[in-house]
Design a protein around this nucleic acid. Sequence first.
DNA 1: ATTAGCACTCAGTCAATCCGAGTGCTAATA
DNA 2: TATTAGCACTCGGATTGACTGAGTGCTAAT
Lengths: 344, 344
Amino acid sequence: MELDERKIKILTAVIKTYLETGEPVGSRTISKYTDLSLSSATIRNEMADLEEMGYILQPHTSSGRIPTDKGYRFYVDSLMETKEREIEDMKEVVLEKADQLSEVLKQAAKLLASNTNYAAMVSTPEIHRNKLKFIQLSKVDESSILAVIVVEGNIIKNKMIHTEAPLDDDTILKLNLLLNTHLNGLSLEKINLGLITLLKEKAGIHTDVVSSVIDAVADAIRADENLEIYTSGANNIFKYPELADNEMASDIINTFEEKKQLEKMVTERLMEDGSEKNGIQVYIGSEAPVPAMKDCSVVTATYELGEGMRGTVGIIGPKRMDYEKVMGTIKKLMDQLDMIYRNT
Amino acid sequence: MELDERKIKILTAVIKTYLETGEPVGSRTISKYTDLSLSSATIRNEMADLEEMGYILQPHTSSGRIPTDKGYRFYVDSLMETKEREIEDMKEVVLEKADQLSEVLKQAAKLLASNTNYAAMVSTPEIHRNKLKFIQLSKVDESSILAVIVVEGNIIKNKMIHTEAPLDDDTILKLNLLLNTHLNGLSLEKINLGLITLLKEKAGIHTDVVSSVIDAVADAIRADENLEIYTSGANNIFKYPELADNEMASDIINTFEEKKQLEKMVTERLMEDGSEKNGIQVYIGSEAPVPAMKDCSVVTATYELGEGMRGTVGIIGPKRMDYEKVMGTIKKLMDQLDMIYRNT
DNA sequence: ATTAGCACTCAGTCAATCCGAGTGCTAATA
DNA sequence: TATTAGCACTCGGATTGACTGAGTGCTAAT
């Protein structure tokens, strides 16, 4: 059996109606569907076929149908192919500029959540490819110096380094000069073993400090250590009865709070199938790499702030989420993030 | 009518039993209570009195009694007076040392939540009284310089300052020297108008930069801007049916996520009555300054890391929380925070 | 190939009923 | 006088059964 034109129409109708109402949809409802003039009986036959093919199912014998994950997947994929509907309104279209990137991202999460009525997350960008802008060592007290590391995009990392013996100001100045002349403008990949050895040599007796600093730089820049995820609107899940169930809600909230789990979704990049377009990725139910999300859908998208600075935004909601709206909203947000970056 | 010995015993028995079971407790249950040898009938009479006095109530006619807020209050107050029971086990007693204070605090929140099975929050310390350790200006690119501000306790703040005209390295060096010689070791209060004027004079044509830096310092150090609250174990509330109700849970989760609300409890210091002891403060139900907490109890405590660095930890759970355990656990945690600070 | 019609299924709702834990009150008791 | 035993009563919660209505599958007619 295959999906002919009419089956597709019926399937789409079922899904759309279900997205709106959240209740199993019956044959009579569909038969009233405008551009389909078929009796409920015919619809029933077709629906029986669709069920056999695995696109829809009955929660219990003789109730209406609801989409299966496969059904949603079909729907979402076909959505991806048609060019996107414009999202008319984004309540507060403005992401205010803030000099801290983290503030912007927090705001973005809030914006997503309040516009969609789902839960939202935004990860800080990975800065793998980023170039070191400069390093500054400063003596803080007798046994510790502070390394401030700035990478392109004005992302700032602080790292305390404890030293055995106190260093005098002059030495620190020299080390600063040394590090900056050699490391400035380099991306992480370019800081290789040869360079490190060279630096250590030049540092003379202070080779241990240099080594600490380089560790610190690597450590500070290493993406997984830096990854932060801002969330917002977790309580939105209570708006959807199918998620508001105690156990489920507890799991979801926990996932949201722990963030370790969210990282998986943010990190994982599935580019294989057609569902990836415009950088938007949709996970339906158990497609998500996180078991707690098995009754949710997750829509993620990758944003890019200049060369190599890639982060992820995501929306988490019930399977019957308004995919069109969500994708539209995310796209709008991406544009804004882009603009913000350009103006900085 | 007044609370005689026996009434106190009965009241305590009712509350303790209710804390364990979470179900209304009847007269027969209490009459079996070991050190009280009274018939259920007598207990009933006493309970009627206690109800009249407002310490307990019946959720519905002819059910057992549960404590009112007033009842809890009595119980908690009397707990405060008796010297604390030792908390025997704290699952993971170790707060690992981390060079970032924020990491320690996050861990602390996690620890509290997992040990008590309630939700926990930990605020970053206010650094009002803290002394400036040093300031470092560095040129980042043509139009911006980075101010790194370190205060005692090794709390680090970064602030980007945009300048109209580019500054040359020499000027920055001079400004650094100027700022550090004059501001080093000062607490925020000591940075007054006179000093600021003096600095501006000395800065010559770069008065605007100095002024920006000082703004930045004030801004960076200002407590309310810096206040962060780490939370953990929000999903624990689902373990208590009286909080797991949808609307309530949604409110609580929201409060937890928004943090604005939590700030109120962290900021507010009620020292008036006897319930404040060891810095521990208990809010029962609507005593808390946050409406969403009306069916919860909140136990907060103030920790101090050296001179003037005060933060708050808090536990949020159902009214029938195990107050003894919570207070004990919090106290243990305080000790640990103390130790961590001393060793740094 | 489509449709009308019919018998059937099943979740959800409502009322009736029962059960048991618990109370308040009264009368008896120490 | 304080305590207790006993009894009638209350009320929430669980159980049951009847009923409804939305929906189905199947068959026979179009």
